[in-house]
Nucleic acid binder design. Structure first.
Lengths: 121, 121
DNA sequence: ACATTGTGCATACACGGAATACACAATTTT
DNA sequence: AAAATTGTGTATTCCGTGTATGCACAATGT
């Protein structure tokens, strides 16, 4: 459970958990079959509600990143390296589509976006 | 008043207004000195509350994009073309910093980001 | 004076996020 | 079999934000 919660963030806590853990899974930092901490324990450690953790785990399940078994726990799903890359790009692309529509609304060209990107990445 | 409001959007209405109008100003579609519609009239046209329009206009004022005069109206501020570009890039960069931190959390390199960008822009 | 425009405030409602608590189901441990 | 563990479901409550409505006030213009 190597996650950081920001109470001042505009993003809800359950989404922060979801994003950080899904990133860890897709970077291979959490091995396939790894058992996530029980939601009650995670809630205690993170000082948040059980429901909040539950929501995050639900999103992970819905994205196919973990398998949940009542009475046992939540386990990181099995992926081939190719699948991991595909899912990762899929998730990033989904986010990127919203981002680029913002850039486009300001009339930026692709080259301009890349130019700005080079400055800060 | 060429703006589109989405009630299903995750973004609040006042922010949709702010983003669209600021983009129009920075693209030069709204000339310097142009008088925005009175908030009551805008609220009627857009079928939203006066307060909602007010919030959007306040953000425009705070960003220095318009000048508000009680009893007269709200007027697009004066910009040199250079200033317009600078402010535009400033606003986009601010947004882009949040976007890239998301990409980075998934371990994407700059080249990977540019690669995905080329596909969808 | 009167109309127009922006400002400020009070009230109200809806919704989402979050917390707490309790009961139930499935599995594991003893 | 009994108890503990773990996930699920539900009910209740609280809070902040977004939004709407209405009214009163300030500044400007005719």
């Amino acid at each position: 459970m190597n996650v950081t919660i920001s109470n001042t963030s505009e993003k809800p806590i359950y989404q922060q958990l979801y994003e950080q853990i899904s990133a860890q899974i897709l970077k291979g930092e959490l091995e396939s079959g790894y058992c996530l901490p029980p939601i009650r324990q995670a809630a205690l450690e993170l000082h948040v509600s059980v429901i909040t953790v539950k929501k995050a785990w639900e999103e992970l399940e819905r994205s196919g990143l973990i398998n949940t078994v009542t009475g046992k726990g939540c386990f990181v799903a099995e992926f081939s390296p190719d699948e991991m890359l595909r899912i990762r790009n899929e998730m990033v692309l989904k986010q990127m589509e919203g981002d680029t529509s913002y850039y486009k609304s300001f009339g930026l060209t692709l080259d301009e976006v890349i130019g700005l990107l080079n400055k800060i990445y």
